[in-house]
Amino acid sequence: MNSNAITTRYPGYDVLNKRDTPSWDPITRQVVEERLSMSRQPRFFDLAQWTAATALCTCVVVQPDDRLAVPVAAMLDARLFEDQGDGWRDARLPPLRQAWCIGLAALDAESQGEHGLVFAQLAAARQTALVEQMQCGKLRAAAWQGMPSDLFFSERVLHDLYGAYYAHPAAWSEIGFGGPANPRGYVRLNKNRRDPWEAIEATAENAATVKRKNTRVR
């Protein structure tokens, strides 16, 4: 697990505790349930791609280690399996699936070239270094087939991985987001006001009490 993982300001808060309250309607329950029970096995990626994608997700999306990790790679795979596009693409990038296939293969090729190992086999620090080079557009091996690596990183890697991660209730809880809110909505809109069904923010001093209170927020 990543050593610089952050701790939440909202200990004990879990939006899922509100599942059976007036903040969740049936369609929301169904949609989130489907996401939570999603298969963690790939249907789109082959083994090599899956290995690279899983490693890339772990490297890019830092998760706290006191809970089950959000299956970002599986969510990405599901999206690619459905070929769910955004409705546009930068002309310099190939379509969604192709971009990912090229990008992951290129990352392995770069890693092989530099270290003689595929991306997933690299130590965390080396993975991060390689990703940073990708972010700066410095990776230009033939395996990229002309696709700019910085664009792949910003428009595909960040967009798709974080789009998946922050669609997960665990991520909502982590940042103290109220989550689904129909039909109950919210009543207290002013600063420093929270509805009883919203997370309480903890300070270093009161974390334990807040944690207890947050487990009852619903």
Partner: peptide, 10 residues
């Protein structure tokens, strides 16, 4: 991205 992003998201 990474830890920097997580900290901002907090």
């Amino acid at each position: 991205w990474g830890a920097k992003l997580s900290r901002e998201m907090q």
